[in-house]
Computed example of a mutant assay.
Amino acid sequence: MVFVAVAVFVVVVAVALVLLMSTAIGAFSAMFSEMRADSARRRARRGDSPVSTAGPVASTSADPLGELADDMRLAQARRWASCRSVQSRLPDQTNETSGYVARALDIWGGGDLDRLRGDRVGQIVWTTAMVADSVARHPAWKLDFFDRHAVRVDLDGEVASIATAAAGLRDQLDILGDSPKGHLGVDDEVIATFTEKSRVLSWRLDGLVARVEAFADYEQIVARIQQRQEKQAWLDRVSAIDEFEHVVDAEWDRAESDRVRNMAGESEVLASIYLHEIAPLAKSLKRSDAA
Rank of each mutant, 00 (worst) to 15 (best):
D119K: 10
R152D: 02
T164P: 03
R152K: 14
Q93A: 14
R103Y: 00
A104G: 14
A160H: 07
L105D: 00
L116K: 12
A167W: 03
S161P: 01
A167C: 03
K142L: 10
S85M: 09
R120A: 15
L143F: 13
L155Y: 05
D106W: 04
G118Y: 08
A150E: 12
G109I: 10
V125D: 02
P91G: 09
S161F: 11
T164L: 10
M130E: 10
I162S: 00
S134Q: 07
G122M: 07
G110L: 04
Q87W: 07
A140N: 05
A163L: 05
R89F: 00
A150S: 15
P139A: 07
A167H: 10
E158F: 01
A140E: 14
V125E: 04
E158K: 10
A163V: 09
F145H: 14
Q123L: 08
G99C: 04
D144E: 13
D106L: 07
T97C: 07
W141S: 13
D154C: 03
R103N: 11
T127P: 11
A104M: 10
L113N: 00
G122V: 06
D133G: 10
D156C: 01
A160S: 15
E158T: 12
A104I: 13
F145L: 15
W126K: 00
D92F: 04
V101C: 05
I124N: 01
L155E: 02
R115E: 12
T127F: 06
R117T: 00
Q123Y: 03
V121W: 02
R117L: 04
C83P: 06
W108I: 08
G122E: 01
E158N: 05
S98Q: 03
A166M: 03
V159K: 06
S134R: 11
E96W: 11
R103M: 12
R117I: 00
F145Y: 15
D119E: 03
P91W: 03
G99H: 11
Q87I: 13
D114M: 07
G122D: 00
A150F: 13
S161M: 14
G118I: 05
G122R: 06
A163T: 10
R152N: 03
I107V: 13
Q93E: 15
G157Y: 09
Q87H: 07
L155C: 04
R115P: 00
Q93F: 05
P91I: 02
G157E: 11
D119M: 06
A165R: 15
R137M: 12
L90R: 06
R117G: 00
A132F: 03
L155W: 08
D144P: 06
Y100C: 09
E158Y: 04
Q93C: 04
A167M: 07
F146S: 05
A150K: 15
R89G: 12
D92K: 14
V125H: 06
Q87G: 01
V135F: 05
Y100P: 05
V125F: 05
A166I: 05
G168P: 01
T128G: 01
W141A: 12
V121R: 03
T128E: 04
P91R: 01
N95D: 15
G110Q: 02
D92H: 09
I124W: 02
